[in-house]
């Protein structure tokens, strides 16, 4: 069976997306889930969280994590998803 391997990125580069494009995605996604960031202050350094910093964090997250995971190409016939890998190992090695 082919081994998994890291592949080079294909398609659009997430880092090239503009802030406006990412903001539109973030806002749409949160609206779809019923999560409202507008209850936070817009830009208030002393607040525990504000919209400006939460959106900045989300943009940077989107510019790095999805693409990094997508770049790790896996064989469709390779390992199935396993949320408890240590347990699966133990269950199969008793």
């Amino acid at each position: 069976m082919p081994e998994p391997h890291a592949a080079s990125s294909g398609g659009a580069q997430a880092v090239d997306l503009t802030d406006e494009e990412l903001d539109a995605y973030i806002s749409t996604r949160l609206t779809l889930l019923g999560v409202d960031l507008t209850v936070l202050p817009e830009d208030e350094e002393d607040a525990p969280a504000d919209q400006r910093r939460i959106m900045a964090s989300a943009r940077r997250f989107l510019r790095s994590t999805p693409a990094a995971i997508a770049d790790y190409a896996l064989d469709p016939l390779g390992p199935p998803p396993t949320i408890y890998p240590a347990e699966v190992h133990a269950w199969n090695h008793e």
């Binding site: 997508a70 790790y72 896996l74 390779g78 199935p80 998803p81 396993t82 949320i83 890998p85």
Partner: peptide
């Protein structure tokens, strides 16, 4: 994919 990667890591 992240869950599949965990098994590969283990």
């Amino acid at each position: 994919r992240g869950q599949r990667a965990r098994l590969i890591l283990l």
